[in-house]
């Protein structure tokens, strides 16, 4: 009788350790990690804290002609997991534009969460100001949407399409024009 009990207790302990490991690490593998207190984007040449690793990424701002986007090389905080890296890139895209650039993103919009699927789709959940503070117009709306979509699909080639959610929900559009009910693919035609 004593031998089976030892096996049973050992099995329970092993299972508990397994559950602990999965619960601790699985969310980090599948989804983004939490943002740190440092800004996600820096301009090249800005002083970099020694222990903060960064990557170069193209972020998208309004072209001087006003009818498209231009890619601007910026430094973004590195994250080991793809979902976490994607989140850093979108946070950097939503942040205030560097001097001399115009952002197509309305003020006050922040990332709530970001998920990746095995089909290469990113679901980016952004706070309501992305829609409520949007000034409208199909051009401005297209610039806003494709700044986010292109930032992800250009810098992370494994992401082929992006669906924008607002406050955790699917929406028709931000301001009545661009269809957001489906994941949107990269739009190279809008890059000047």
């Amino acid at each position: 009788m004593s031998v089976p009990w030892r096996w049973l207790i050992g099995g329970v302990i092993a299972a508990a350790i397994g559950v602990w490991v999965v619960a601790l690490w699985l969310p980090g593998w599948l989804a983004d990690d939490r943002p740190d207190s440092t800004s996600s984007a820096m301009l090249p040449g800005d002083p970099v804290p020694a222990q903060t690793r960064r990557i170069h990424a193209s972020l998208f701002y309004v072209a001087a002609s006003g009818d498209g986007l231009i890619g601007v090389d910026r430094e973004v905080v590195y994250a080991p997991a793809p979902a976490a890296q994607a989140r850093r890139i979108v946070e950097a895209q939503l942040a205030q534009a560097p001097e001399g650039q115009v952002s197509a993103i309305p003020a006050g919009a922040e990332v709530r969460s970001l998920f990746l699927t095995s089909r290469g789709e990113a679901f980016v959940d952004i706070t309501a100001p992305l829609a409520t503070n949007h000034p409208g117009g199909s051009l401005h709306e297209a610039l806003t949407v494709y700044a986010i979509v292109n930032a992800l699909t250009v810098n992370l080639p494994d992401i082929t399409a992006v669906q924008i959610l607002i406050d955790g929900r699917e929406v028709d559009s931000l301001a009545g024009h661009i269809d957001l009910r489906h994941p949107i693919r990269r739009n190279p035609g809008i890059i000047r």
Binding site: S65, G66, D67, G137, S138, L139, H140
Partner: peptide, 8 residues
């Protein structure tokens, strides 16, 4: 329409 660049 509306554009972030007023000159457009």
């Amino acid at each position: 329409n509306s554009s972030p660049v007023a000159a457009v």
